[in-house]
Design a protein around this nucleic acid. Structure first.
Length: 203
DNA sequence: TTGTGTTTTATTGCCTCC
DNA sequence: GGAGGCAATAAAACACAA
């Protein structure tokens, strides 16, 4: 009658305890063979493990345990690697954010300057209009057929382009502020919320 | 030499699958 | 219910600074 798996297991435990009570590290050749096997198959079948154990002069249980521990070590290293990648990715994102923040600040300053300029021009235009209308009132007294009615909004056409640009800039600035509020880069807590385990990171 | 930290081998207990 | 996997942990072996 052929021995069952549990028979082999028990036998393996008994012999490993009886042969030597001293725990010994595997030699270089054993480690090398086990590593090679692990590269091709991290979860070998029972028969494969038994054959390998026989070849290396180890108990099948020792080989099985070695594979279990190796899988655990491998997983741990992989996690460490993924964590480092994630950290690099986070740092890059932080740098980009800082650049955008500076750009945002300089745009706001630019916007302020342009608004002041606009206010100045508007005041000058109003003064001109007042002077102009006073002059025209006098001219109408002498030659009313040449007088054209002055439209208060006529000057607006000249400012339509630049003004709309400034409005756009203001909207962009407001948008950036919203983003800034939404993603607070002072905190790294969002890292803990990521459930990504993929080893395939793209930068 | 020795204390301490790290790595490796082994055990235990629990879980899932067939 | 047995087999095998995994996580957590123990314990031996090893490395190394003081």
């Amino acid at each position: 009658m052929a021995p069952t798996n549990s028979d082999i297991w028990t036998q393996s435990i008994m012999s490993s305890k009886c042969n030597d009570n001293m725990r010994r590290r595997f030699n270089d050749e054993q480690i090398k063979s086990l590593e090679n096997m692990f590269e091709t198959e991290s979860r070998p079948e029972l028969r494969t493990k038994q054959q390998l154990a026989k070849r290396l002069g180890l108990q099948p249980r020792q080989v099985a345990i070695w594979f279990q521990n190796k899988r655990a070590r491998s997983k741990s290293k992989q996690l460490e690697l993924e964590y480092r990648m994630l950290q690099i990715s986070y740092d890059n994102l932080g740098s980009k954010y800082e650049l955008l923040k500076k750009e945002h600040e300089s745009l706001l300053i630019q916007l302020q300057r342009l608004r002041k300029l606009m206010e100045k021009d508007e005041n000058e235009e109003i003064e001109k209009d007042v002077i102009k209308s006073e002059t025209e009132v006098k001219q109408d007294d002498f030659a009313p057929e040449f007088g054209l009615p002055l439209c208060e909004d006529s000057r607006g056409i000249d400012y339509l382009g630049p003004e709309s640009d400034i409005l756009d800039m203001a909207q962009i600035a407001d948008g950036l502020s919203e983003i800034e509020n939404e993603y607070n880069f002072e905190s790294r807590t969002f890292l803990h919320d990521t459930g990504c385990t993929s080893p395939l990171w793209e930068f």
